[in-house]
Design a protein around this nucleic acid. Sequence first.
DNA 1: GAGATAAATGAACGTCATTCATTTATTGGT
DNA 2: ACCAATAAATGAATGACGTTCATTTATCTC
Lengths: 208, 208
Amino acid sequence: MAAILDQDGITAAALELISKKGYDGLTMAALARSLGVAPSALYNHVSSKDDVLKLVEEDLMSKVDFGGFSTLPWEEAVRQWAYSYRGIFARHTPLISVIAVLPVTDAPQTLAMYEAVTEGFLRAGFPEKQIIPSIVALEAYIFGAAFDANAPADIFDSGRLADSTPHFTSAVRSLGPERNNYPSDLAFTMGLDALITGLGALREQPGS
Amino acid sequence: MAAILDQDGITAAALELISKKGYDGLTMAALARSLGVAPSALYNHVSSKDDVLKLVEEDLMSKVDFGGFSTLPWEEAVRQWAYSYRGIFARHTPLISVIAVLPVTDAPQTLAMYEAVTEGFLRAGFPEKQIIPSIVALEAYIFGAAFDANAPADIFDSGRLADSTPHFTSAVRSLGPERNNYPSDLAFTMGLDALITGLGALREQPGS
DNA sequence: GAGATAAATGAACGTCATTCATTTATTGGT
DNA sequence: ACCAATAAATGAATGACGTTCATTTATCTC
C-alpha cells in the first residue's frame, strides 16, 4: 500500500502539534488527524506513544548547539551548550522525565552530542575519569533549570503566610520593586558560572 | 454523615500506595479502594488528582532536612539539605514537574523550608539579593539530580554505535571495569561541591 | 496476472479522571 | 425529642485516551 507514513513524518507532525497545542494536545488521535490518517495506522511505524516521545527527543537533541566545543575555550563552549540545551528543553519539559532515564543506545543524535562534549572536555585537559560525572552534573543542572524556566512569575509569593516567613519574603522582595519577579534566568547564569568554575578546577594544569 | 475521609488520611494513603505500587499505581480508584471508599467520595476533600499530588508534595517537603542551617557551617548545611532533598525526591520524580511550577502560596511546609534556608544564607553573609537566585540554582540542580538517580546502570551504553563515539565510549569505560556503571552519586557530589564553592564566593567577606 | 506483503482502516476494549443526582448519617436549633 | 439543614458517601454515567486486531487495500515481485 502507499506509504503515507514514516517515522520522520510522524516526528515532524508531533513537533508541530506540540508547538501549537502543547504536550496536552499531543494525543495519538490528534497526531493521526494531523497526518490525515487513522490512529491505528501510527502503530505500524511506532510501537507506542512513548516511542513518539523518543523520536521527538532525538530530533530536539540534534538542535542543541555543541559546536563551541571544537572552536571556543572550554568555559565558553560549556556556556553556549548549556544555554542552548536549556532553551530547547524548557519548552519540552515533559520529555525530561523520559530523557533522563533513557539509554543512549540507538540514539545517534544524543550520542553525537556526548561525543563532541567529551572531546571538548578532553581538549580542555580534563582527566578522563572526571568527564562523564562532570557532564552528568551539568546535565542535571540544565534539566532542572529547564523546569524552572516555566515557573510562573508569582511562584514565590508567600501570600497569607508572609508574616511567618519574614526573611524569605524580604529576600524575594529585594529582587525588585515589581510584585513578583522570578529570577530564573539570573539564577541559571549564577549556578552555571559556579559549576563552570568548580568543575573547571578539575582540569589538569598544563605544565605541572 | 460519618467523616471517614480527610486530607491527612488521603495524603497518608497516597504515600503508602506510591511506595507500594509506584506512581503508576496511584489512581483515584486505587486510592479510594485503599481507604475503603468510593472514588467519587474523594472529591469531597480534594478537587482533583493534581490536588492529591500537591498534598503529597507538601508532606514530602516537611521531611526534607534543613536543620543544618541553624547549627552547621553554611557549606555543611547546604550539603546536608541537598542530599536529603535529592534523596526524597529521587523516589518521587513525577512530582518534580508539579513542584517546579507550583506557587508556594498556601504551602506552609515548603515555605518553612525556604525560610530556614534563607536564614542560613543570611547568617552565612550572603547579600540579600543573591539568596533567592542561589537557592533557585541549587534546587534546579537537586531536581535534575533526582531524575538522574533513577537512570538505569546501562544508560551510557553506546552499543552498536560505539565505534562512532570513541572518546565518549572510552570515557564511560574509564569509570570502572564493570560493563555499565552510572556515576549518579559521584556526579551529584562533584556538581554540588562545585556549586557550593562557586555560590559560596558570593558571600560578603566579614571584615572588608 | 497471481500471490505475497506492507500499510491503512474502523470497530472495540480497558483504564482513567471526573461529574452528578441521590441517599445517608450527623449536627444544631427549637 | 423532633426536624431541618448540611456534610459526606454512593453508584452510575461520561468522555478522553492509548492500544489491539481482524479486515481491507494498494503496491511489488515473480
